[in-house]
Each structure stands twice: as C-alpha cells, then as structure tokens.
C-alpha cells in the first residue's frame, strides 16, 4: 500500500522542500499572488498533462500534444479573424482535436502500430496544418474574447485566480474522478498493467484506446484554448516541445512510463514543480531560463532512479513473501 503511494509522496516532499527553500530566499514567494500566477502560467501545461497521464498509464505516449496546442491557437485566431464567434470556435476546435485523437487511437489499435510512431506522425501533421492555415502570428481581437480573458476571481492579497487557472483545476479534479472512480479509469490502468490480460478479462480495448487518445487530444485542444486565452494570439511555432514538458511533469508526478501505475494528483504536483522552478528563476532575475530545463532533467533522472529502486524493492519483498508462504 505504501509502496504504491511512495512516488506520489516523494513528489510532494520534493515540492514542499523546494518551495520552502525558495520561500526562505524570497519570502514574497509565499504570497497568494505568486501561487495564483503559478497556476495561471502553467495552466495549459497542466491541462495537457492530465490527458498525457491517462495515455502514459495506459502504456502509451502522445507526442502530438504540443502541435495540437499550436494548431488550436492558430485555428482559433484564423476563424475568429474570419468573423466566427469565439464560443463557436471553441466548440469547433474541440471537436476537431478530439476527432484527431480518436483517429490516432484507432490507428494505434486497428493497425497495431506503436503509439510513438502514430503520435509522432500526428505531431508533424498537426504542426503542418498550422502552417497551412497561416505562417504569421495572428493576434486575437474580439469583444467576447476580451470578456472571457477578463474573467477572474479576486483572491485576498491582490492575487487573481484567472479563468485559465480555474479551467486547469477543474480539469484536474475531473481527471482524478475519471481515473479513480469510473470504469473507464480502471480500464486505463488495466490496459497499462497488461494489455492482453485486460482484453481477456473483457476490457473493451478498442473503444478504450480510441477514447484515451481522443481524451488526450481533446484536452490538448482545451490546453490550446487556455494557451490562446493566455497569450491572446495564434502562432504556428508556439508550444514546440510542450509534449516533452508534459511527459516530464507526468513522470516527475510518479507515473511509470511503462504504464499501469500513476496518479493524476501526482501529475498536478509535477506541473507545480516545473512552475516553481520557473518562478524561482524569475525571482532570482540573474539566472538563464535554461536552468529550468537543467533542473527538470536532473529531477527526471532522480525520479526514474527512485522508481527503479521501488520496483526492485517490491520484487524483493514479493520473493520474500513467497519464501515465507512456502
């Protein structure tokens, strides 16, 4: 039981310790304003990471996330410029991205192609589609849009919980609900544990695979909307490499890349850790932003080592239990 929760606990401890260290150096980092900004600045990453968590727990990978975010932004900018209402544009783009994911899921299942290859193709495809729409960075300007971006909840102490931050929190809560309290969630864990067994146990593998990638791309669409609201522009080269940041957040959050083990809550902490490092760098003011990547890289190594260690300990304990039983 404890071994199951250990990666999550380790992630939490890392976050708390890191935050405490930051706060000791810059007491201002303790303010609600900073926390709110942390959520706002990383909202798109968090939303995409929820979808990625499902994909990775199921034993897959989705490399198309960053491109889908960029595509969403460009699509929104182009159609809103063409005179379409932002709300209609949101609905349209979510339909497109979800269908896009569903098609990738179907290819993965029915053509028995590795997710890595299919979503890599999806990544190029979606990025290419951006350039097909436009090569320019297009600002989004619309009365409804301005209204939406202005929505926020004023926190005590001058911080604002923006709409995008709220969207991220809602997506995380919904993700936790789906992962742990629905059959779909159990199917995802089951497929990650052993796809063939899950199939023999009656898990609708085809439907679940399609749904997982549809969910991931759909959430990447939501992340794209969040990103567009955050930047108020659509640009074809935006969000390059975000899929890798997302994967890093998921792994730091305690999810095994081999599938079957992980939590949405862990991913949330993983996203916060990434955000915390960036915030620290901004507060410091002298460090290059590339330090974020270096620290993330170090953390990834540490967590992979931790996970290998846990797997090893679990195997040893199982062997010991068997000896005791014999």
């Amino acid at each position: 039981m404890t071994a199951r929760n250990l990666p999550l606990i380790a992630t939490l401890v890392v976050f708390i310790v890191a935050y405490a260290l930051c706060a000791m150096q810059f007491p201002a980092m303790l303010s609600l304003r900073v926390v709110a900004n942390l959520l706002t600045d990383n909202a798109y990453l968090g939303v995409a990471a929820v979808g990625m968590t499902f994909v990775i727990i199921s034993g897959g990978i989705d490399l198309s996330v960053g491109s889908v975010i960029a595509f969403t932004g460009v699509f929104l900018a182009v159609v809103i410029r063409a005179g379409i209402d932002p709300i209609t544009a949101f609905v349209l783009v979510l339909i497109i991205t979800t269908l896009f994911g569903a098609v990738m899921g179907a290819m993965i299942h029915y053509l028995e192609t590795p997710p890595f290859i299919v979503t890599l193709a999806g990544m190029f495809f979606a990025r290419g589609a951006c350039f097909l729409l436009t090569t320019d960075s297009i600002p989004i300007d619309h009365p409804t849009w301005d209204f939406i971006t202005s929505l926020n909840y004023r926190l005590p102490g001058g911080g604002r919980l923006t709409l995008v931050a709220m969207i991220m929190l809602v997506v995380f809560l919904a993700g936790i609900l789906v992962a742990h309290f629905t059959r779909f969630g159990t199917y995802v864990y089951g497929m990650g544990g052993n796809r063939q067994s899950a199939e023999l146990m009656g898990v609708p593998v085809a439907r679940t695979t399609v749904a997982i990638y549809a969910l991931s791309s759909g959430l990447a669409g939501v992340a794209g909307i969040v990103f567009a609201l955050y930047t108020s522009a659509g640009y074809s080269l935006a969000a390059t490499g975000v899929e890798l940041d997302t994967i890093a957040a998921v792994v730091i959050g305690g999810t095994l890349l081999t599938g079957g083990v992980g939590t949405i809550a862990g991913t949330f902490v993983g996203v916060l850790i990434q955000g915390l490092i960036q915030t620290y760098i901004i507060f410091d003011g002298t460090l290059s932003s590339w330090w974020t990547k270096i620290v993330i890289g170090g953390l990834l190594f540490a967590f992979i080592l931790l996970q290998r260690g846990l797997v090893h300990v679990a195997a040893r304990r199982r062997a010991a239990a068997r000896m005791a039983a014999a």
Binding site: F181, T182, T186, Y189, G193, N194, S197, A198, V203, V261
Partner: peptide
C-alpha cells in the same frame, strides 16, 4: 492485472456503481 487491487481484478468491468461512479 498485477497492478490493480485484488478487488478490482475480481470486478473489473462490473464494479458496483453509485450515480455512475465506482
């Protein structure tokens, strides 16, 4: 599925649900 609980293994796909939740 070794990564799921014994109970989940027994009732995978037919868990008792309340209001659609397990």
């Amino acid at each position: 599925l070794p990564n799921l609980s014994v109970a989940d293994n027994l009732y995978l796909g037919r868990e008792p649900t309340r209001f659609g939740l397990r």
